[in-house]
Design a protein around this nucleic acid. Structure first.
Lengths: 141, 141
DNA sequence: ATATTGTTGAAATCGTTTTTCAATAAAAAT
DNA sequence: ATTTTTATTGAAAAACGATTTCAACAATAT
């Protein structure tokens, strides 16, 4: 839970950014959440400790965290961007329940390999991929 | 190129919908386009033959086509919904070029199988999936 | 302490999609 | 054929998430 703050600190130094209570608070709150959260979710959580914080600041800060490799945007297909932890979290795919919206993280090394091969077959230099498997989760059936 | 109109006709009969020039025109235009097209693209094309047609009608009609299994919505990650043909087109994944936006359709039966297995491993009843591989296409490098 | 300049947050704006609603037109009833 | 019914249309308005603007503010450098 420390490294992420170091990354933020380094970015602040390197880029001539300023150390603000908002940024530190959003990072703290974000790291404490486990799962996939919308800006509104994160902002709501942040407001508990920092009531004056604005939605716009959360948008801007999460974009910064994305650039720093701390957060990754994902979308469940409902038009709302959600963020998940990225630092020290390896790549994974998502199993999205179409009933309850639950989102499970999963990964198959074989699928990863085959995706590389598929891209190359078409002359693509692969840079990443996003796989969502939709279905009914264990709890919902 | 005939079956799709039959499907529309049948839906009109079954659901008490009405046969309108707009719906037939949008279907004609959509079938004539090959690739992935936004509402604005489709509306622009439709306007050539039917100048009075409105964007809203295209939204509504494409949603109907989705329900009828004639069209499938896909998103390239840029927030704009695009439609592709579904009827008589088997499932495929998308290779999206991050430089030029080109979108190639590809499929790997092995990946499909492994996805099923991955879903089941987590107790999911899979209902479908969307895989986008991002990278640089042959032309762009 | 002061000057500089990055940051904040409310309001305004943006771009896509949806809803509203009066006018229209397709199908049914006469 | 005419009238009635009701689905459909399309412009305008609203909704929605996300972005931009800008004056007030506050972190850092001088």
């Amino acid at each position: 839970m420390k490294k992420e703050f170091e990354i933020l600190s380094r970015a602040i130094g390197d880029r001539g950014l300023r150390r603000t209570a908002q940024r530190e608070n959003i990072l703290k709150v974000f790291l404490a959440m486990e799962g996939h959260f919308s800006i509104e979710n994160i902002c709501g959580e942040a407001k508990k400790q920092f009531p004056s914080i604005g939605r716009v600041t959360v948008y801007r800060t999460m974009k910064l965290f994305e650039e720093l490799g701390l957060a990754e945007k994902m979308d469940r297909g409902d038009g709302i961007a959600r963020y998940e932890h990225k630092y020290n979290h390896k790549h994974h795919d998502h199993l999205v329940c179409v009933k309850c919206g639950a989102c499970i993280e999963a990964v198959s090394p074989q699928i990863e390999k085959l995706q590389e091969a598929l891209a190359k077959k078409y002359g693509f230099v692969p840079a990443g991929h996003k796989l969502r498997i939709f279905g009914i989760c264990k709890n919902c059936r």
